[in-house]
């Protein structure tokens, strides 16, 4: 079984915070990490490989630095790494990104199973997985929390819904996006790290994957960011002061009027 896992390098969102003085994002010390959901997708891919046999290829679209994330993926069990990198990809929205990634998957010979994290923590769009599947014309399942079986050319899994979960089955080739509940990602092994250090990352540019120039990067994007701003928080504040009993009395009064 040929498994492709799509991973994205993202800024560690928990470090991104507002600088109260400049009201801008302070990014001192913000590290680039593998999108946390993608770590779970990778782990699931590696487990499926270990159970059913096959290979795991990690694929990322990004600047050359994203190679570090691919090496990390190799240390965690991926066999091969492919980076799609071209300045022409910059500014891509999800429409352009899915074109690029689906072209890359075709270029490397397709896949029996494609795994993605449910979303990336920088954009949170959750669109790339389904978009790739649609462009490749294959079925998909989102928010997968458990793979039940993967046999006889079909995969059966449980996907989360807002009110429970559905057990569904689809024939391969197929794509799935996973939630964190699906597994506990492993810590990279020593042999994996050694392999990651020496592995040659296949790097493909826009021409290599036969990308349609009208469908990549900023130009190929269907959406456009017109404004970026920091969220406005409501300012009216009445501080209740006094002894504990006085404060509680005021709170009771407020609650009574509200309830």
């Amino acid at each position: 079984m040929k498994i492709v896992v799509c991973v994205k390098q993202v800024p560690d969102a928990k470090d991104v915070r507002l600088d109260p003085n400049t009201n801008t994002l302070a990014r001192d010390g913000v590290q680039s990490i593998m999108n946390p959901y993608d770590r779970h997708a990778l782990e699931e891919g590696v487990r499926l490989k270990e159970q059913y046999g096959g290979t795991v290829t990690v694929l990322s679209m990004g600047p050359p630095q994203a190679g570090e994330t691919l090496r990390e993926a190799v240390a965690c069990g991926a066999d091969e790494a492919v980076l799609v990198s071209d300045r022409a990809f910059a500014g891509a929205d999800t429409w352009a990104t899915t074109h690029t990634l689906s072209q890359a998957i075709k270029k490397i010979g397709g896949a029996d199973l494609i795994l993605c994290g449910k979303q990336a923590i920088d954009g949170d769009t959750a669109q790339v997985g389904p978009g790739i599947a649609e462009r490749l014309g294959i079925p998909y399942a989102t928010y997968v929390k458990k793979v039940v079986t993967c046999e006889n050319g079909a995969i059966r899994l449980q996907r989360m819904m807002d009110d429970g979960y559905d057990t569904v089955e689809m024939d391969l080739p197929a794509l799935m996006t996973v939630v964190k509940e699906i597994n506990e990602p492993r810590i990279p092994s020593l042999k994996g790290k050694m392999k990651a250090k020496s592995i040659a990352i296949t790097t493909l540019n826009a021409a290599d994957i036969g990308a349609d120039p009208d469908q990549i990067g900023l130009k190929g994007s269907t959406t456009q960011v017109v404004r970026v701003f920091t969220p406005q928080v409501r300012g009216e504040r009445a501080m209740l002061t006094g002894t504990v009993d006085e404060v509680v009395a005021q709170l009771v009064e407020k609650l009574e009027s509200l309830l």
């Binding site: 492993r186 810590i187 990279p188 092994s189 020593l190 042999k191 994996g192």
Partner: peptide, 11 residues
């Protein structure tokens, strides 16, 4: 088990 998986048992 995680340490074994990370190859630490064979150091």
């Amino acid at each position: 088990k995680a340490m074994a998986q990370a190859d630490l048992y064979g150091l």
